[in-house]
Structures are given as structure tokens and as C-alpha cells.
């Protein structure tokens, strides 16, 4: 039983030797680089998360800004459209009014001219009728003919006038 707890300096020596060899080799070759990589990865992940949060906040801010701009743009467009409609209406009314006036003027002047032409034509006809009457009367007097001849002559003369 005393073997269970007997002192064994050789075993103590070899435990220290083994421990030190493992410690020195692995501390420099494995654990140092691995712990460093772990720490750096943790740092990188924290940084990446922070950057992602920042980017998300920025995106939200930007989209809000864009939306606001869009809304403002829409309102402005509506305003422009309304204004354009009003202007167009005004313009149309103006054009219509001018056109009416012009048309009235044209009609009025046309009527005036027609009236004037009519008066002139009547005057001309009147003058022509007088001349013809005089001519017919002269011919009638020269030839002394019957009333039937008179009638025929008058008709022929009128026909000639109509041809001319």
C-alpha cells in the first residue's frame, strides 16, 4: 500500500521535463499563434459588426432622405402640373376670345364688303339698264315697227346682253 504514496524523484523530474518541453514548444509554435489568431478574429468580428451597424444606420438615414426628397419632388411635380393646367386654361380662354373677336371682325368686314358690293352692283345694273333702255328705245324709234317686233327686239337685245 505504501507504494501508492511513495516518493519517486525520477517521476517528478520527468514530469517537469515533459511539462517544460510541451510548454516551451507549444507556447511558441501553437498556443501563441492560435490565441493571437483567436483574439484577432474576435476583434475583426466586433469591427465587422460595428461597421455593419453603422452601414445599416447610414442606409436607413439615406433612404429616409431619399424618400423625403421623393415626396418633395412629387409635391413639386403636382404643383407644376396644376400651374401648367391653369396656364393652359388661361391661354386657351385668351386664344378663344381672340379668335372669336377676329372671326366677328372678319364676318363684319365681309358683310360690309358684301353690302358695299351689292350697292355697287345695283348701281351698275341700274346704269346698264338705263343705257340699254336708251339703246332699245333708239332702235325701236329708227325702225318703226310693230309692237310685236318691239317685243322681239327687246328680247333679242336682252339675250345679247345676257351673252355679253
Amino acid at each position: 500500500m505504501e507504494k501508492l504514496v511513495s516518493l519517486d524523484t525520477g517521476l517528478i523530474f520527468w514530469t517537469w521535463t515533459t511539462f517544460l518541453i510541451v510548454l516551451v514548444i507549444l507556447a511558441t509554435k501553437a498556443w501563441g499563434p492560435m490565441i493571437e489568431a483567436l483574439e484577432r478574429r474576435q476583434h475583426n468580428i466586433a469591427e465587422a459588426l460595428a461597421a455593419a451597424d453603422k452601414a445599416r444606420a447610414e442606409t436607413g438615414e439615406m433612404s429616409a432622405k431619399y424618400e423625403q426628397q421623393l415626396r418633395a419632388g412629387r409635391v413639386e411635380a403636382q404643383e407644376i402640373l396644376t400651374e401648367a393646367r391653369v396656364t393652359a386654361q388661361k391661354l386657351r380662354a385668351g386664344i378663344e376670345a381672340t379668335a372669336h373677336t377676329k372671326a366677328d371682325e372678319i364676318v363684319a368686314s365681309a358683310q360690309e364688303r358684301i353690302e358695299a358690293e351689292k350697292v355697287k352692283a345695283i348701281a351698275e345694273i341700274r346704269a346698264t339698264v338705263v343705257d340699254l333702255s336708251l339703246e332699245i328705245a333708239g332702235k325701236v324709234l329708227e325702225r318703226n315697227i310693230t309692237s310685236a317686233d318691239n317685243q322681239k327686239l327687246a328680247e333679242a337685245s336682252l339675250r345679247q346682253i345676257g351673252k355679253a
Binding site: G10, L11, W14, T15, I21, I25, L26, K29, A30, W31
Partner: peptide, 25 residues
Amino acid sequence: ISITKHVIMLWIAGAVVLTAFLLGS
């Protein structure tokens, strides 16, 4: 500092740890 079975087991343990971590790292 004589070699006994526990010394050998200790060496094997050290060798296993060394090999595993040197290969894995």
C-alpha cells in the same frame, strides 16, 4: 531518474499533445 511505466505514459501523453497541436496549428 529511472524510467518506469508512468514515465513512459507521461512521455506518450506529451508526444500526443505535441503532435496534435503542432499538426493542428
